[in-house]
């Protein structure tokens, strides 16, 4: 079909009949690029960016495609795709390698002016979590927040501390966690003392929450200390002490989940904590 060009129109060339079948194309002067920013927390992920443009003077859409591997440390990874002049018809981001859960990879597509790292952001086309089955697409996805919806459930194995040391695990940079459950095994030495293990949530400096499980652990015993959302205290001398966590406790990057143990001995030995968390990309 012929393209009608009207040089007197201050808004640029007209698409003519093509406008009726091409949805809501975005006019490009040739100075704009597509900037894709990805926040990813899973190793082995490959992202594909694809779409179509209608170059000025062309009568058929031209597809484009590019893949890249974002970092897996939740830092921003970017790809800049020159678009030429004409019209952007559609674009999408999808995972083509790796299996991130919803919440582990978040993508944003923007129209920017320029081709360098200081390109000016003009318009956010779309933003959403992406997986191998769910795209972030324009038009279609809209602009979603990285904290919207359910996060990715994760079972995290923390640091196994040295003998006599406390447990401590930190919410990683770029992540937001909701702590659902936490447990750790403590093997006490033969030194006689009543150990009282408590879980502590702090912001890296200030204690926000501290709770025990209501029972002391004596010498030469092995006890698993378990804390869960909304549960009460319960002590089973055969091996499990149960304590409570606040419900819907969300933690920012740099906040810590750790222990303070009254009467801990140099020979006492915590194992690695196991955390059940729900994680989102903070995308900040």
């Amino acid at each position: 079909m012929d393209q009608v060009v009207d040089g007197l129109n201050p808004w640029g060339p007209k698409l003519g009949d093509a406008a009726d079948v091409l949805g809501a194309p975005l006019y490009l002067t040739g100075e704009e690029s597509l900037l894709v920013t990805v926040f990813n927390g899973l190793a082995g992920v490959t992202v594909k960016i694809s779409g179509r443009t209608l170059p000025l003077g062309a009568t058929r859409p031209v597809p484009f495609k590019q893949t890249f591997t974002p970092t897996s440390n939740r830092a921003a990874s970017t790809q800049l795709i020159p678009l030429g002049d004409g019209w952007l018809l559609n674009a999408e981001v999808i995972i083509t390698a790796g299996s991130p859960l919803m919440g582990q990879t978040f993508a944003k597509m923007s129209l920017v002016r320029g081709l360098t790292s200081v390109a000016e952001d003009l318009y956010t086309l779309a933003a959403d979590n992406v997986t191998a089955q769910q795209t972030c697409a324009w038009p279609g996805s809209g602009v979603q927040g990285s904290l919207d919806g359910a996060g990715a459930l994760r079972s995290v194995t923390g640091t196994d501390p040295a003998a006599g040391a406390e447990c401590s695990d930190t919410v990683p940079t770029g992540a937001r966690w909701q702590l659902h459950a936490w447990n750790v095994q403590l093997v006490t030495s033969a030194v006689v003392a009543n150990r009282a293990a408590t879980i502590v949530i702090d912001d890296g400096a200030n204690v926000l929450y501290q709770a025990g499980d209501g029972v002391v652990q004596t010498a030469s015993t092995t006890i698993r200390h378990v804390f869960g959302e909304g549960v009460g205290f319960w002590g089973n001398p055969n091996g499990v002490f149960l304590g409570t966590l606040p419900q819907k406790l969300q933690l920012l990057a740099g906040w810590r989940i750790r222990t303070i143990t009254q009467a801990i001995d140099v020979g006492d030995n915590y194992g690695p904590p196991q955390l059940l968390v729900e994680e989102w990309m903070e995308a900040s």
Binding site: G41, L42, A43, G44, S72, N73, G98, Q104, R154, V156, T157, G158, T159, P161, G164, A165, E166, C167, S168, D169, T170, P172, T173, R256, R258, I260, T261, Q262, A263, I264, D265, V266, D268
Partner: peptide, 14 residues
């Protein structure tokens, strides 16, 4: 498949 980032714990009582 995710990465773990260690931070040393504060000193314990012992």
């Amino acid at each position: 498949g995710t990465s773990y980032f260690h931070r040393c714990p504060p000193l314990s009582h012992s």
